[in-house]
């Protein structure tokens, strides 16, 4: 579907409390356009709890249940069971959490809900940090990135949440990016039509967290894809299909841009460029991406 054909209906109101250039609001608009008003959202502690705005006001035109940080998937399990008892199985249950609430504190509840076959869509908007609490490292933070708790740069690589989710063999999981709205919209719409647990992870480049200019949110998403730092794919019944530019990269029709093209715009990697270029760390970052794509080619080509 082309952008111009997306539903006009908005479930996220203007004047919400997001930062300028926020990727989460881009994603929320698209996701809620795809799901429509017959949706109940479950939101743990994350930036969206702020975007919702201050009680008694709200930025959402769908019901929202806030829940504790680690409890999004478990809370959604209760909502889903309750709706089934009430004969409202047509209502979509959407758990909407950040990477902290997904990779780290919420991984147990998520794994449990996936294993139980909960009929819901779990979306992780991944900005690779705890941004709501002021930019601390998460399990999704990339190697060498500055955060307030990795002051000299993170010394570990992030974990592969997509692999962890796929190990649950759920009917549908996917990775998307805010810079590819048609792809994201299509994936959410597809997930809506599938029964059982669905997991979608959306890369969400965060201007204040990644330290780039707020007009570059979309560019940071596209560069992540073009450098192979992020991948667009979907997995239906254990069969993985790459999408968009990621597909073309996998097939080798175009070359991945060097990782440096993506990270040089981000202040969180500034220490790799000034006072002098840290060739060694830049090489490690590139090698990490290369290795992942070697694996992709072996597994998915």
């Amino acid at each position: 579907m082309a952008l111009k054909d997306l539903p006009i209906e908005e479930c996220l109101f203007q004047g919400n409390a997001a930062c300028p250039g926020c990727p989460a609001t881009i994603a929320l608009r698209l996701v809620l356009k795809a799901l429509g008003k017959n949706t109940i959202m479950v939101v743990p502690a994350c930036c969206t709890a702020v975007i919702e705005s201050l009680y008694p006001k709200t930025s959402f035109d769908v019901p929202v249940m806030n829940i504790a940080f680690e409890a999004a998937a478990a809370g959604a399990s209760g909502v889903e069971a309750s709706l089934r008892q009430q004969g409202k199985e047509d209502t979509t249950v959407l758990a909407w959490a950040g990477d902290g609430g997904t990779y780290d504190i919420g991984i147990q509840a998520l794994s449990g809900a996936l294993e139980r076959g909960t009929n819901f869509i779990y979306i992780c908007y991944n900005n690779q940090i705890y941004s709501n609490t002021g930019v601390q490292r998460s399990g999704a933070t990339p190697y060498s990135a500055w955060t307030t708790t990795t002051v000299s740069g993170k010394t570990e690589f992030y974990k592969e949440m997509g692999d962890i989710v796929r190990a649950h063999h759920i009917p549908y999981s996917a990775q998307a990016c805010i810079s590819q709205p048609e792809d994201l919209y299509r994936k959410v719409q597809k997930a809506k039509g599938i029964k059982g647990p669905k997991y979608i992870e959306i890369l969400a480049p965060c201007p204040p967290g990644w330290r780039f200019s707020m007009d570059l949110t979309v560019e940071m998403g596209d560069l992540a894809i073009e450098t192979g730092a992020w991948t667009l794919y979907e997995c239906e019944n254990d069969i993985v299909t790459f999408n968009g530019k990621s597909k073309i990269l996998l097939e080798g029709k175009i070359k991945r841009k060097p990782a440096e093209e993506w990270i040089k715009h981000q202040g969180r990697f500034r220490h790799l460029f000034v006072p002098k270029k840290d060739e060694e760390k830049l090489k490690l970052i590139q090698q990490h991406i290369d290795k992942r794509w070697e694996r992709y080619q072996k597994e998915f080509l």
Binding site: A76, S77, G78
Partner: peptide, 22 residues
């Protein structure tokens, strides 16, 4: 519905979700 959750924390979270939906 009988949800066999993966922890007590999730048990109460699921009860909260169910109760909030009536």
């Amino acid at each position: 519905e009988y949800i066999c959750v993966e922890s007590e924390h999730s048990a109460m979270a699921a009860c909260i979700g169910a109760s909030e939906t009536g």
